[in-house]
Design a protein around this nucleic acid. Sequence first.
DNA 1: ACCTGAACACCGTTCAAGT
DNA 2: ACCTGAACACCGTTCAAGT
Lengths: 237, 237
Amino acid sequence: MLGLVTKQFSSVWTREERPPKAPGLSRDQIVRAALDLLDAEGVEGLSMRKLGARLNAGATSIYWHVANKDELLELCYDRVWVDVVVLDPETAHWRPALSTFAHSLRSTILRHPWLARLLGRIPGLGPNLLSVSDRIMRLMQRAGFEGLEISFATGTVMAYVMGQTIPEVTWRETMGKQEIQPGDLMNILEKTTADDFPELFAAFRDTRDMDPLETQRMSFSYGLECVLDGLEARVNA
Amino acid sequence: MLGLVTKQFSSVWTREERPPKAPGLSRDQIVRAALDLLDAEGVEGLSMRKLGARLNAGATSIYWHVANKDELLELCYDRVWVDVVVLDPETAHWRPALSTFAHSLRSTILRHPWLARLLGRIPGLGPNLLSVSDRIMRLMQRAGFEGLEISFATGTVMAYVMGQTIPEVTWRETMGKQEIQPGDLMNILEKTTADDFPELFAAFRDTRDMDPLETQRMSFSYGLECVLDGLEARVNA
DNA sequence: ACCTGAACACCGTTCAAGT
DNA sequence: ACCTGAACACCGTTCAAGT
């Protein structure tokens, strides 16, 4: 009898809140969770099952919003391009604008190291990447490039940044993580490298007392200036 | 009775040949089989089980010769660098030598498309890659670069080639394979792209009647000349 | 319309056991 | 020294079934 009475009482405060996933998953929500997982654990850390768990959903629920894992990765890949800075093509000068873009793209990749693994795998057709490309091409066109050269020049800069940054990421994930005594590394390299690869060894000797991250930044800037010099020579031709 | 007689007869020719794996697996043999599998089926086609089967061995036998799959991939990755042409640094002029190297590296990657997927994953420390790097650096040194600039210049060329070629591979594996009517693609792009991304659309219009593979080759050469121009300007500075 | 669980066909890797 | 098979802990994806 008493039991019945208590059962009749009911209010928002007594009722269990419905699980916060609420009305359902959205593609946007899924992509955001996937990005979190990628940033936290890298490409290998992202599995449909883990992603489902993080969303308080069954792993297979995701397949209603997204055809498969590759499509999900395409969405993640495109999303990061919103962070890449491209100055306004109508007002900025092309050379500093390209330099800003290049450094911005590099640091975006370094902030999301999993990008390095996706670059050889994802066809970049998302709106954010297209938008960046379009604005870079506009920059090139205003710089004086014409016709096919607009694409070629754009591709050159993009290729350089990606090609330079991907190995940087790999380096940070392998050699960069372990605390090696510089002397130890020196000894290892000295034995195997000094005789067979003299130039390589000389280069290693030159940089052994420098901060590797700083050296990589210098290297990136150096090559970028080369590329931009090469482009500038063509604009004025 | 007759059965016994036949059983006694024995010779090399009657005896079943021992399975051709013979004395055992060698690391070299494993790597060669893995390369075959990679060329034939790509990175996803290579599994330890399939590789074992191809070697007439248990999948787990491989683990005696190689610590894990990543190490195996490192070995495969390094192996392809033997095909990359670097002219003799002591006799060749640096600029044509770098151009030869760049085109050779590009075509090596295009011949082994799985390389594009490994680039963001493998720390390149194998002897063949080191040897190529060493010779390129020697080339740079003879060109007139000094100190850190030897490494920087080398890294710039490598970055450019990889960054340009990786997307080429991705393109060939996705868009390149399907027979799309140019008109269809045009229609798709026209709707979504023409207004939002005018420069992109203009570029697409300019190249729609060209052979995409040829355009990519032109683009590669164009950017390479930019990079080499930029380097040349620094040598003479 | 959206989500679930069970099931399928795979993975890489470990390890005790064999020869 | 070299190889095996079973086993473990994962995968991505499909699909009938639920609400």
